[in-house]
Nucleic acid binder design. Structure first.
Lengths: 208, 208
DNA sequence: ACCTTTCGCTACGAGTCGTAGCGTAACTGT
DNA sequence: ACAGTTACGCTACGACTCGTAGCGAAAGGT
């Protein structure tokens, strides 16, 4: 991430191990303490680095937690289960499994809350977390079109709007179920949800 | 809320005006500062009360913000627009209008984040905010059944599961659209969303 | 009048924040 | 090998917030 400005070629390089240790320590602190009681000094101690090192790399708590949580979403990928319905179910379960982890819950929601007052933070979240999920929606559609389960899109503009709608519905429902309702996203729920979504989209396409 | 233990009949009564001033000051502080930079001392100053008064009534920042945000959801009600689809659209737009306010965004998300590590807080949120929304789903179904738009439920258990699913999808999608995608819930979106939801539910009911 | 509870105010130790300064460590180009 | 450059660990610091305690005064009930 910080290689946006090509790294300086001279001087002592930043320790990649320290980066990993800090992010791991941040996640551990999120699990034990939650967002509000997490202190940067504590994270530094857990990671075995000096507090100043932490401040040299991240501007503050928000940015640090975004990076720590973003790593959790690296494992997200679109499984090929043979049908569009099964693919969606797989993604829902995968996403839910990540959200079930306490560090993901408390960390992600807290930075989202802060992002309402900080556009730069929202952009960081979008780039490192949200877009990674959105990509799955687009890939899933392409794959379903290749299978012949979906017609090729006629109007690219309305296709983009539909993709956005799907994304908000899927991610929103899973997050709400996990976080607000505090009930598990199990096979039963994922199946019922997927069915409603697919039939709704099919019906809307027929009516249009 | 604090009348759970019937108020003591003797001594100086608590000032109701102070309660209102504190909650209003909390919302104002949320707008200006956001969650993380909101301090109880600042809220007390804004409300014109002593900091100690604040601590006598609320255990901490979490509980205070929950009450302050909960008041925003008092205006939620189910409009009678003639059809199930129109009713749902109305609720979606109403809910979105509340969520669009900055104090609702930052406050609600922050306490939700904290509630992942505090069961008592989650219960408080559920009682004072979430259930008020959920009630609308149940009322909407009853009204639609009276209109003949929905069949009377056969299995009360599956009916409860369906209501939970609807609730998570509606609330989740609106929250995600507003907060994560950071795009407005306008008439176009609300209409498209409602159509997908209703057609999906109808299709799922036919297949069952 | 008397009792009870709340209120505003002040003061306090404890903890966190983010930064500065310093000497040392690690790596690069000549 | 050596000088230049950057990262690191450590310590110390003022500023701020936290949550609580103690006090006298205010506001109500009986």
């Amino acid at each position: 991430m910080q290689s946006r400005h090509s790294a300086p070629r001279t001087g002592r390089p930043r320790s990649a191990a320290a980066d990993a240790a800090i992010l791991a320590a941040t996640r551990a602190a999120l699990v034990e303490l939650g967002w509000s009681k997490l202190t940067l000094g504590d994270v530094a101690t857990r990671a075995g680095v000096a507090k100043t090192t932490l401040y040299r790399r991240w501007a503050g708590k928000n940015e640090l937690v975004v990076d720590a949580v973003a790593a959790l979403f690296d494992e997200l990928e679109l499984p090929d289960r043979g049908s569009l319905a099964a693919d969606i179910e797989g993604v829902v379960l995968q996403f839910a499994a990540i959200l079930a982890r306490p560090e993901a819950k408390s960390g992600l929601m807290a930075v989202l809350a802060e992002s309402t007052r900080d556009d730069a933070l929202r952009e960081r979240i979008r780039a490192s977390i949200v877009d990674r999920q959105k990509r799955l929606v687009l890939e899933g559609r392409v794959r379903a079109q290749a299978r012949g389960e979906l017609p090729p899109e006629e109007n690219p503009e309305s296709a983009a709007r539909t993709a956005d709608l799907i994304f908000d519905v899927v991610a929103g429902a899973v997050v709400h179920r996990t976080l607000v309702s505090a009930e598990p996203v199990d096979l039963t729920w994922a199946h019922a949800f997927t069915q409603v979504l697919l039939l709704g989209l099919a019906g809307a396409a027929n009516q249009a």
